[in-house]
């Protein structure tokens, strides 16, 4: 049996992507890099949905529809995130979070 015709392959792939994304959000200090990491987390969820849909689901369309919705919502999220990042850059002249630390306590 081929390795890419098994559910577990895709679940491990998604888990790895999720872990990389989570690591990226926590470790990177650049706002754009953090945004990309969040997209990785969403992609991991999408791969999960597609894999479950392909191998297990009785109805073939549900997982695909969910994935399409996630793509659209993620695009909206990226738009809002980028616009706020631009606002951060205009005010602080940097997109590095280490410099954005006025709120404390």
């Amino acid at each position: 049996m081929l390795i890419f015709n098994q559910l577990s392959t895709y679940l491990y792939l998604a888990l790895a992507l999720f872990a990389i994304g989570l690591y990226g959000v926590l470790a990177r200090r650049n706002l754009i890099a953090m945004l990309i990491s969040i997209e990785l987390i969403l992609n991991a969820a999408m791969i999960n949905f597609m894999a479950f849909n392909r191998f297990l689901a009785p109805h073939p369309a549900v997982g695909q529809v969910i994935t399409l919705f996630i793509m659209a919502v993620a695009a909206a999220e990226a738009a809002i995130a980028l616009s706020i990042i631009v606002a951060v850059y205009r005010k602080l002249k940097t997109i590095n979070v280490e410099q954005a630390t006025e709120l404390r306590g």
């Binding site: 959000v25 706002l31 991991a44 969820a45 706020i84 606002a87 951060v88 005010k91 979070v97 630390t101």
Partner: peptide, 22 residues
């Protein structure tokens, strides 16, 4: 402080909704 609060809210919110989706 407003953009700083905004960016924190957005990123923590986006990560938690990513968790939720997973």
């Amino acid at each position: 402080i407003d953009v700083e609060a905004g960016i924190k809210y957005l990123f923590i919110g986006a990560v938690s909704s990513g968790f939720m989706l997973f």
